[in-house]
Simulated assay, not measured.
Amino acid sequence: MELIIAASKNANKIREMNEITAKLGLHIISRDEAGLPDVEIEEDGATFEENSFKKANEIMKLSGHIAIADDSGLEVEYLHEAPGVYSARFAGEDASDEKNNEKLLSLMEDLPYRDRRARFVSVITMVWPDGRKLVARGECEGHILTEPIGENGFGYDPLFVPDGYQRTFAQLSAEEKNRISHRAKALTRLAEMLKGKE
């Protein structure tokens, strides 16, 4: 198995990645598991692509290994695509998922369902020590509910109902979510690109 170091410290993201990439012979470990120093990588890019590349490139330079980074977030049409790249810190720098969800709901109060369109976006970048890189983007369209429902998932999952479903991401099983999520689509695209490189 080829070892790849993830820029993320988010165990949920790494688990989702591994569930999809394991069948490609790739094993992703966190930067902590790789024993890398706990450097703060400032996510100051204006796009998911910029942040994703910056994180992967920093980890590759630190480790000398292939590195992978995901930058993802929620874009709400009514809020002019906010929170976007600020999704994780929407309610402040160290905001919890609950605080971010509360802020989002307060900004969309009394909005009818048809106007609550949103999409999850994931951009995954893989960087090699020899300078090669692959960038894959995935999107999942849906709507935002008026209250959180479901115990699975993380982030905005309890508020997001993907198109064609009656349940939120937080109500879907890992298998169901991994078939349709933005991250799954980005990873599937990345897998296709990797196969093309072989």
Rank of each mutant, 00 (worst) to 15 (best):
L74H: 04
V85D: 07
A95R: 00
T146M: 06
S122F: 05
N51R: 13
I124N: 00
H65Y: 15
I41G: 02
E109S: 13
G35P: 07
G142W: 06
N51I: 09
N10I: 07
W128I: 00
R116I: 10
R137M: 12
E77N: 10
K99Y: 10
E19G: 03
H143Q: 10
K13G: 01
N57T: 03
E75Q: 11
A82E: 11
E19F: 10
I28L: 12
I4D: 00
V76T: 06
L36A: 03
E49Q: 12
S52W: 01
L104T: 06
A95L: 07
D32N: 07
S8N: 13
K103G: 06
N10H: 14
N12V: 06
K23E: 13
L24D: 03
E43F: 13
V127W: 05
C140S: 08
R117Q: 14
T47P: 01
I144D: 01
G131N: 02
L104G: 06
D38L: 04
L62I: 12
S122V: 00
I144L: 15
G131W: 05
R137P: 00
L74D: 05
E141Q: 13
A46D: 14
E141S: 11
A46Y: 13
V39N: 02
R132T: 08
A46V: 13
V135R: 14
K133N: 08
R15D: 05
V135A: 06
I59E: 04
E102P: 03
N18G: 02
G25W: 11
V121I: 15
V76H: 00
E40T: 14
L105M: 07
L107N: 06
E33A: 14
K133L: 14
E16Y: 03
S72T: 11
L111F: 12
D38P: 02
K103Q: 10
H143A: 09
D110L: 08
E102C: 09
Y113E: 11
M108D: 03
E141G: 02
A6I: 00
E40K: 13
E50K: 00
Y113I: 12
C140R: 14
H143N: 04
L74W: 05
E42T: 11
S30R: 02
E75F: 03
N100E: 04
D94S: 05
H65Q: 13
V85Q: 04
K133G: 01
L36R: 01
S87D: 03
I29G: 06
E139H: 00
N12G: 10
E58Y: 02
A7F: 13
E33T: 07
I20N: 05
D94F: 11
G35A: 06
K13P: 01
G92W: 05
R116Y: 04
L24M: 11
L104F: 11
N101V: 06
L111G: 09
R89Q: 14
T21A: 13
N101W: 05
P37I: 01
A56L: 04
G64N: 07
A34K: 10
T47Q: 07
K9T: 08
G138V: 06
A46I: 13
A6S: 15
V135F: 03
A11T: 14
S30Y: 06
C140M: 14
K13Y: 02
R31H: 07
I144Q: 01
R31M: 00
R89E: 08
K9S: 14
L36I: 02
E109I: 12
V127M: 11
A6P: 01
S52Y: 05
K23A: 14
E81K: 15
E43K: 13
A67D: 03
V127I: 14
